[in-house]
């Protein structure tokens, strides 16, 4: 089922959580709403679920306006950050809840409910825990139960609010791969909210980057990462070095003093050399700290005008250079993005 958000605005007192948001989600896709806290992503998800109502704008499922429907009528599955399992019910009863509360006319028989719950317990690999209570489960297990509970009602849309936010790093990684696999199997239109860019880029078909109640950019993960539409997106996705720049005859030069252009360079797009580079766009820097643990060597340096800069290089390159701490080197940006500092809109790329 496709989801169509049009002109949705929501304010809490003076705080504008959503500012005229449009969002189109094609059927069967897994979309991440990515943004810092307070960017409005959870509010948007809750409005789609019907847990919150928009001040203006409409939500449509498959073209039909459902803005005025209750959460139950929308047939959405919602997974909460803190699981929100029914604490006085067993795992089995939690999963069965959505089927048991249906009106008598549409309620499945006891055997059908049992079969459905068994099937979901198999799916989440918790068949032996059916009679346990939520308090007896680990965080990862609880979130899987919450997911099974949401899936039991066969929702047309699955909404997940920071589903892995409360879990530790390893469980988080496992569970998000599991979610990706699950989605590849059932193909239910899904939206999940996260502030973790790595999670969004790894799991989602599309990533919508949100900031201050607006969607800054939506696209495939590699598209959003490699072609950020705004300075905010560039900054938010991965680490970045920020410089001032000036443009002369189509070429961008990194500049020491403030200009009206901002130059963004990823740490891996900076190259260190000992010889004076041929490229006119370069600057001098002194290495301050070298971290050679891990696949990439991370070098922290200070530019000739005293600003910190981060450079990443392969272990191989590091060995060839045999770089040491406190050395003065030349730095050349191999790839950069320029944005107008006042608006954050892109200017040029080199």
């Amino acid at each position: 089922m496709s989801i169509n958000v049009r002109g949705v605005t929501k304010a809490f007192g003076d705080f504008v959580a959503l500012d005229n948001v449009d969002l189109e989600i094609p059927a069967g896709k897994l979309v991440a709403l990515l943004g810092p806290s307070g960017s409005g992503k959870t509010t948007l998800l809750r409005i789609i679920a019907g847990l919150e109502f928009a001040d203006a704008g409409t939500i449509a499922f498959d073209g039909a306006d459902i803005s005025q429907r209750s959460p139950g009528e929308r047939q959405v599955g919602f997974v909460f950050q803190h699981y929100a399992l029914f604490r006085h019910m067993t795992v089995f009863e939690n999963i069965a809840f959505g089927l048991r509360v249906r009106p008598r006319s549409s309620r499945p028989s006891e055997e059908r409910i049992r079969a459905k719950v068994e099937e979901l317990l198999r799916l989440i690999q918790l068949r032996n825990q059916a009679s346990r209570y939520p308090s007896q489960l680990s965080g990862g297990q609880r979130q899987r139960v919450a997911l099974a509970r949401a899936l039991a009602v066969e929702p047309s849309v699955l909404l997940l609010d920071e589903p892995f936010g409360a879990l530790d790093a390893k469980v988080r990684l496992e569970l998000r791969r599991w979610l990706r696999n699950l989605h590849d199997e059932v193909h239910i239109t899904s939206i999940f909210v996260t502030h973790d860019q790595e999670e969004a880029l790894e799991v989602a078909d599309h990533v919508a980057v949100m900031n201050r109640g607006k969607i800054e950019q939506i696209g495939a993960p590699d598209d959003v990462y490699n072609h950020p539409a705004t300075s905010f997106v560039f900054n938010f996705l991965g680490s970045v070095n920020l410089f001032h720049g000036r443009i002369e005859e189509g070429t961008t030069y990194i500049h020491q003093t403030a200009t009206d252009h901002l130059v963004f360079v990823r740490p891996h797009s900076l190259e260190i050399s000992r010889r004076l580079p041929d490229h006119p766009n370069h600057f001098r820097a002194t290495t301050k700290h070298i971290n050679a643990a891990g696949p990439l060597v991370k070098v922290e340096a200070v530019t000739e005008w005293g600003a910190p800069v981060q450079v990443e290089m392969s272990q191989e390159r590091f060995r060839d250079l045999s770089l040491i701490k406190g050395e003065e080197v030349f730095v050349v940006p191999t790839e950069l993005a320029v944005f107008r500092s006042s608006e954050g809109t892109p200017v040029a790329r080199a």
């Binding site: 959460p71 047939q75 399992l85 029914f86 604490r87 959505g98 949401a150």
Partner: peptide, 11 residues
């Protein structure tokens, strides 16, 4: 939270 969960599940 639990009430909201129940509402989304159709209760």
């Amino acid at each position: 939270d639990e009430e909201e969960a129940a509402l989304t599940l159709g209760a």
